[in-house]
Every structure is written in structure tokens, then in C-alpha cells.
Computed example of a mutant assay.
Amino acid sequence: MKIAAVLTCFNRKDKTLNCIKKLMHQYKTIDIYVCDDGSTDHTSEAIKKKYPNVKVIKSNGGLFWSKGMFQGMKAAVTKDYDFYLMVNDDVDFYDNMLEIMLNSYESANGNCSIVGSTQSSFSKKLTYGGSVLKTKLNINKKFLLSPTGKVQKCDFANWNCFLIDKFTIDNVGLIDNAYEHGIGDFDYSCRMKKKNIPMYVATDYIGTCERNPIKNTFGDNELSIKKRLSLLLSAKGLPIKSSFRFYWKNYKIIGVPFLLWMYLRILLSISLNKPC
């Protein structure tokens, strides 16, 4: 069985090295592809020194997450693996992560993808994983599914840990590299749904990962309104181009009111100096 792991990184050398170490403990012949998007903390050099067999794809800092993952996937698919494991380098994987993911895949009878759930190392609460729509009438309202010991079908998957089989790659392709940073993982979920390829939440937690803090983001009400607006429209916020692409591409005219409502709600919170 051939397995490739794909991740992108930027100036988180210690976390990236820890992620690679944990991945190598999962499976003796796993191939790892890292897209280093212009790190200045010598991440690439450290990887090459400690893990010379890891494939490092270097960029100049303009890719961000979705485009970085695209480059990693593009390199990996040339080797025709059985599975492609998409991960974030800030996940601290449990030793049996891959076993849980592969067993969940078998439980779901194959021809699907599996999303691994992470929990906070402090509170042990669910942080990332697979989510379902609360109601089909509101495409913006989702809730995460906690692992139950059995696989659970989901609508959307965070790519903190996401196992894609060859069948899915052959039918859906790579992540869309038109997105400026985020949303690419949720877009991939929508593309899978259109192809009638299911996604399932793995049976158990696969590691720890903290939720991204709101400090120094557009949600931080300690920042000025001008700064928050700038962050909102930045690549790591909710850039208009990427947001419009996601809603129009996946929902057409139905998605426009939800897109507008999302921005109006956020702008109202910013104008009232409230967190969001």
C-alpha cells in the first residue's frame, strides 16, 4: 500500500518537524511532500538535514494554504499512490492516527474519504473535523460531529487530517488553486458531493490541535475598525474573490444571499466593535 502525506508550512519550523516525525511513526514507507511557502526560519534546511527523504517544494511566500496544498498534491499524484493524507503541521498526531483513518475507511466500505477529528490538548473538546449542515435551508450553519466509535457521514471536512483515496483523486482531482488561502477544503467537499463520493468522520480522535485564536484577526475587537476591515479582506481573512468563487461555484444564485449576509453580519460586528 502506497501512502503520501501532503502539507504546507510557513515559519513554524518546530511544529513542521514534529508533524513530519509523527507522520513517519505512522507507516514505515509513507512519502511526505512539504510545500514551504517562503519560510524565513530555515524550515526547508532543517527538514532536508533531519529528513532527507521528504520532498520539499519551495515557494516565495505568495501561495498561502490552498495554493500550497495544490503544489504538494500536484507533485504527489505523479507517483500514483493508493492514499493521499492531507494534514496541517499544527496537529500533534496520536501514534495510532493512520490506523484509525484506514480502519475507518474499511468500515465505510471504501471509495470515500475520511476526515480525522482533533481535540484540544487542554480541554479535550472537539476542535476540527467533519461537519454537517444544521438545516438545508441555511448553507452557512454547520456543526462539527464528535467521534462516536463508528464512522459518520458528513457534508464538509477540515483538512487538518483528511484521507483521500485514489478513486476520489481520479474523479475529483486536486484542490482548487484559485483560492487565496482557505475555503479550498470546503470547496473540495462540495466537489465530492457533486460526484456522489461520500465523506466520513473517523471513529476516534486522531490528535490534538488548538482552534485558531481570534487575536490579530478581523474578529479581534481590540483592533481598530480600519485594521479589522483590512484583515477581513486580506488573503487570510475572507477575501471577496475567494468567497464569491466558493458560493457561486457551488451554489450559484442561491449562494449569493448567504454570501452577502455573511459579510453584512461581520461588518455590523466590526462597526459595533464586537468580536466575530
Score class of each variant (00 low, 15 high):
residue 1 M to E: 14
residue 1 M to T: 14
residue 4 A to M: 09
residue 5 A to F: 01
residue 5 A to P: 02
residue 9 C to K: 12
residue 9 C to T: 15
residue 10 F to S: 08
residue 10 F to Y: 15
residue 10 F to P: 00
residue 11 N to V: 01
residue 12 R to N: 15
residue 13 K to H: 05
residue 21 K to E: 14
residue 26 Q to Y: 03
residue 27 Y to M: 11
residue 28 K to G: 00
residue 28 K to L: 03
residue 29 T to H: 09
residue 29 T to N: 13
residue 29 T to M: 02
residue 36 D to C: 02
residue 39 S to E: 12
residue 39 S to H: 12
residue 39 S to C: 13
residue 46 A to R: 09
residue 47 I to F: 06
residue 47 I to T: 05
residue 49 K to I: 08
residue 51 Y to R: 07
residue 52 P to N: 03
residue 54 V to D: 02
residue 55 K to W: 01
residue 58 K to V: 12
residue 58 K to D: 14
residue 60 N to L: 13
residue 61 G to K: 06
residue 61 G to F: 08
residue 62 G to A: 09
residue 64 F to G: 03
residue 65 W to Q: 15
residue 67 K to L: 10
residue 68 G to C: 14
residue 68 G to W: 14
residue 69 M to P: 07
residue 71 Q to C: 12
residue 73 M to W: 10
residue 74 K to Y: 04
residue 75 A to W: 00
residue 76 A to L: 02
residue 77 V to H: 05
residue 81 Y to T: 08
residue 82 D to L: 04
residue 84 Y to G: 09
residue 84 Y to D: 08
residue 87 V to K: 04
residue 87 V to M: 08
residue 88 N to S: 05
residue 88 N to H: 06
residue 91 V to Y: 03
residue 93 F to V: 00
residue 94 Y to F: 07
residue 97 M to P: 00
residue 98 L to Q: 06
residue 98 L to I: 06
residue 100 I to F: 04
residue 105 Y to I: 08
residue 108 A to V: 06
residue 110 G to L: 07
residue 110 G to C: 06
residue 113 S to F: 07
residue 115 V to K: 01
residue 117 S to T: 12
residue 121 S to F: 05
residue 123 S to P: 04
residue 125 K to T: 05
residue 126 L to N: 04
residue 130 G to R: 00
residue 132 V to E: 06
residue 142 K to N: 12
residue 142 K to I: 13
residue 144 L to I: 12
residue 146 S to C: 05
residue 147 P to E: 11
residue 147 P to F: 11
residue 150 K to I: 03
residue 153 K to E: 15
residue 155 D to A: 04
residue 155 D to S: 06
residue 157 A to M: 03
residue 160 N to S: 14
residue 163 L to A: 08
residue 166 K to E: 07
residue 177 N to D: 15
residue 177 N to P: 13
residue 177 N to M: 07
residue 178 A to M: 03
residue 179 Y to V: 04
residue 179 Y to G: 04
residue 181 H to A: 15
residue 183 I to Q: 10
residue 183 I to T: 09
residue 187 D to S: 10
residue 188 Y to V: 04
residue 191 R to F: 02
residue 194 K to Q: 14
residue 195 K to D: 01
residue 197 I to T: 00
residue 199 M to I: 15
residue 200 Y to E: 09
residue 200 Y to V: 09
residue 201 V to E: 03
residue 202 A to S: 15
residue 205 Y to Q: 04
residue 205 Y to C: 05
residue 207 G to T: 04
residue 208 T to N: 10
residue 210 E to W: 13
residue 211 R to Y: 07
residue 212 N to Y: 14
residue 212 N to H: 13
residue 212 N to K: 14
residue 212 N to M: 14
residue 214 I to R: 03
residue 215 K to P: 00
residue 215 K to A: 12
residue 217 T to G: 02
residue 220 D to F: 02
residue 221 N to G: 00
residue 221 N to I: 00
residue 222 E to W: 00
residue 228 R to W: 01
residue 229 L to R: 14
residue 232 L to A: 01
residue 235 A to W: 11
residue 239 P to L: 08
residue 244 F to V: 11
residue 245 R to D: 05
residue 245 R to F: 03
residue 249 K to V: 06
residue 250 N to T: 08
residue 251 Y to W: 12
residue 252 K to Y: 10
residue 252 K to L: 09
residue 255 G to D: 12
residue 259 L to V: 08
residue 266 I to H: 06
residue 268 L to Y: 14
residue 269 S to G: 06
residue 270 I to N: 01
residue 273 N to V: 03
residue 274 K to T: 02
